[in-house]
C-alpha cells in the first residue's frame, strides 16, 4: 500500500464488492479506504498551544470514493474543515492483513477459519457457527458477519484470482498503483523488493500478529 499514491477514489472498494458479491448497500465491506485530515495546531489568546486534531472517516467504506470536503464524524455530524487549517490529509486503504500469526484463527472454536499453506486466511462458510469470536479477535476490524448467510466474512485476498496467477480485484482496479500484491516468499518479486529495500510500516505491530500488508508513506496518525 502506497499512501502517497492513494487519492481516495474508492474504485478498489467498488471492484471488491462486485467481484466478491459483497452486499452493495449493507454497511459491510472487505476492503475500505480511510481519510485522515490532520488540522494545524493553534495558540489561544493566552498563548497556550492547542494541538491540531485528526479527523478520520470512511463513508460507506469509500465505496463511492471521497467526493465531499465534509468529514463524517458519526454522531457529531458532518464536519467541514477550513482548507487553510489543514496541515495534511491522506487516504489509507485497508483490508485483511493476512497476518502470519492470525489471532482470528486462534480463537475459532470449530476450525472454520484457517490459514492456507500460502499464508491466506480464509473462512469455511459451511463450518462457521457464527459465534463471532474472530470478529472480536481481529485487532484490525476487518471481519464482519455476512448479512444473509450469517457466517463470518473477510477478505480472501481474491484467492480465486491469485490461484490462477492473477492479481486481486482491488489491485487491478487501482489506477494509481497505490495497491500492489506479490509473493513475499519470492525475493525476486517486485513487491518483496520494495518491502525489503524501502521504509515500510505495518499496522499495530505491537500486537505481534505479523501483518502482511505493508504501508509506504504511513504516518503516526494511522491507526
Amino acid at each position: 500500500m502506497d499512501i502517497h499514491k492513494c487519492v481516495g477514489c474508492g474504485l478498489c472498494v467498488k471492484a471488491c464488492k462486485i467481484e466478491n458479491d459483497v452486499d452493495w448497500d449493507a454497511n459491510v465491506t472487505r476492503t475500505w479506504v480511510e481519510r485522515y485530515v490532520v488540522t494545524k495546531g493553534s495558540r489561544d489568546k493566552d498563548g497556550n498551544i492547542k494541538p491540531g486534531e485528526t479527523l478520520i472517516d470512511s463513508p460507506k467504506g469509500a465505496r463511492d470514493g471521497f467526493t465531499s470536503q465534509k468529514i463524517d464524524q458519526a454522531h457529531m455530524g458532518l464536519k467541514e474543515v477550513n482548507p487553510d487549517e489543514i496541515a495534511k490529509a491522506f487516504f489509507v486503504p485497508k483490508l485483511c492483513n493476512h497476518c502470519e500469526n492470525p489471532p482470528c484463527v486462534q480463537v475459532c472454536p470449530v476450525g472454520a477459519t484457517y490459514q492456507t499453506e500460502d499464508g491466506v486466511v480464509l473462512v469455511d462458510r459451511t463450518w462457521c457457527i457464527g459465534c463471532g469470536y474472530c470478529v472480536m479477535g481481529c485487532p484490525y476490524g476487518v471481519r464482519y458477519f455476512h448479512p444473509t448467510l450469517h457466517v463470518a466474512e473477510k477478505c480472501t485476498l481474491c484467492y480465486h484470482r491469485l490461484s490462477q496467477g492473477m492479481k486481486t480485484a482491488c489491485v487491478d482496479a487501482c489506477p494509481f498503483g497505490a495497491r500492489r500484491v506479490g509473493n513475499i516468499r519470492d525475493p525476486e518479486d517486485p513487491v518483496t523488493k520494495i518491502i525489503t529495500s524501502e521504509q515500510v510500516n505495518v499496522l499495530k505491530e505491537e500486537f505481534g500478529t505479523k501483518p502482511q500488508v505493508f504501508y509506504l508513506g504511513s504516518s503516526m496518525e494511522v491507526k
Binding site: V7, T67, S68, P83, F90
Partner: peptide, 14 residues
C-alpha cells in the same frame, strides 16, 4: 467525481 471532485489536500496525490 471519485477523482475529480476538488478536495483541498495540498500534500496529497489528489
Amino acid at each position: 467525481l471519485r477523482c475529480h471532485s476538488l478536495l483541498p489536500y495540498k500534500n496529497s496525490a489528489r
